[in-house]
Amino acid sequence: MYGKSEDRDDYQDVPRPLAAMARDLADGHHIPPHHHRRAQLIYGTTGAITVTTGQGSWVVPATRGAWIPGGLEHAMTCAGAVAMRTLYVAPGAAHRMPAVPTVVSVSPLLRELIDEATRLPVHYDVRGRDGVLMRLLLHELAPHPVTALHLPAPSDPALAELCAAVRRRPGERWTTGAAAAHAHLSTRSLQRRFTAATGMSLARWVQQARLVHAVTLLARGTPVTAVAGSVGYATPSAFTAMFHRALGASPTGYFRGSV
Results as ranks from 00 to 15, higher is better:
Thr45Leu: 08
Thr77Lys: 13
Met21Ile: 08
Trp67Lys: 12
Lys4Arg: 15
Met97Gly: 00
Arg173Cys: 00
Ala19Pro: 00
Ala148Glu: 06
Arg169Tyr: 11
Cys163Ser: 15
Ser107Asn: 02
Ala249Pro: 09
Phe239Lys: 15
Thr216Asp: 04
Val126Lys: 10
Arg38Ala: 11
Arg135Asp: 11
Thr45Ala: 14
Phe255Asp: 01
Pro17Cys: 03
Leu141Lys: 03
Arg129Asn: 12
Asp125Ile: 02
Ile68Cys: 02
Arg204Phe: 04
Thr45Lys: 13
Ala197Cys: 05
Val59Ala: 04
Ala142Val: 09
Gln55Ile: 08
Ala39Asn: 03
Ala117Val: 07
Ala48Ser: 12
Ala183Gln: 02
Leu25Ser: 07
Thr46Tyr: 06
Val132Cys: 09
Gln12His: 14
Leu217Asn: 07
Thr175Met: 10
Val60Ser: 05
Glu116Cys: 12
Ala99Ile: 00
Arg169Cys: 07
Arg127Pro: 02
Ala158Gln: 06
Gly28Trp: 07
Thr235Cys: 00
Gly3Trp: 04
Ala83Trp: 09
Val104Trp: 02
Val104Phe: 03
Thr50Glu: 07
Trp205Gln: 06
Leu136Gln: 11
Ala164Asp: 09
Asp115Gly: 08
Ala249His: 02
Ala81Asn: 10
Leu247Ser: 06
Ala153Gln: 13
His123Phe: 10
Met1Ser: 14
Lys4Gly: 14
Asp10Trp: 13
Ala94Asp: 06
Gly177Cys: 07
Val59Asn: 14
Pro108Gln: 03
Ile31Gln: 03
Val259Ala: 03
Phe239Trp: 11
Gly44Tyr: 11
Asp24Val: 14
Pro69Lys: 12
Leu109Pro: 06
Met21Lys: 15
Glu6His: 15
Ala99Ser: 05
Ile114Trp: 04
Gly177Lys: 02
Ala203Tyr: 05
Asp9Asn: 14
Leu72Ile: 15
Pro251Met: 12
Asp10Thr: 13
Thr175Pro: 14
Thr50Asp: 10
Ala93Glu: 06
Tyr43Ala: 05
Asp130Glu: 11
Ala246Leu: 02
Ala228Cys: 12
Ala249Thr: 01
Gln55His: 08
Arg167Val: 06
Asp156Asn: 09
Arg119Ser: 06
Gly80Cys: 13
Pro32Asn: 01
His213Cys: 08
Gly221Trp: 03
Arg16Asn: 08
Asp24Thr: 15
Ala203His: 05
Thr187Asp: 01
Asp27Pro: 04
Ala228Leu: 12
His244Met: 01
Asp130His: 06
Trp67Cys: 11
Leu218His: 01
Met97Phe: 02
Ser57Gly: 10
Leu72Trp: 08
Leu120Gln: 10
Ala209Leu: 09
Leu202Cys: 00
Leu41Ala: 05
Thr195Asp: 00
Ala62Met: 14
Arg129Trp: 05
Gln191Ser: 06
His30Arg: 12
Leu218Lys: 10
Gly80Arg: 12
Thr46Asp: 09
Met84Gly: 13
Pro33Gln: 10
Trp205Pro: 03
Thr222His: 12
Met134Gln: 04
Ala83Thr: 10
Leu149Trp: 01
Val146Ala: 08
Phe239Tyr: 12
Gly232Thr: 15
Leu247Pro: 08
Tyr2Asn: 15
Phe243Val: 07
Arg85Phe: 11
Leu141Gly: 03
Thr176Gly: 10
Ser57Val: 15
Gly65Glu: 05
Pro143Ser: 05
Val60Lys: 10
Ser155Pro: 06
Thr216Ser: 09
Arg193Tyr: 00
Glu112Ser: 11
Arg119Ile: 02
Gln191Glu: 08
Leu247Met: 12
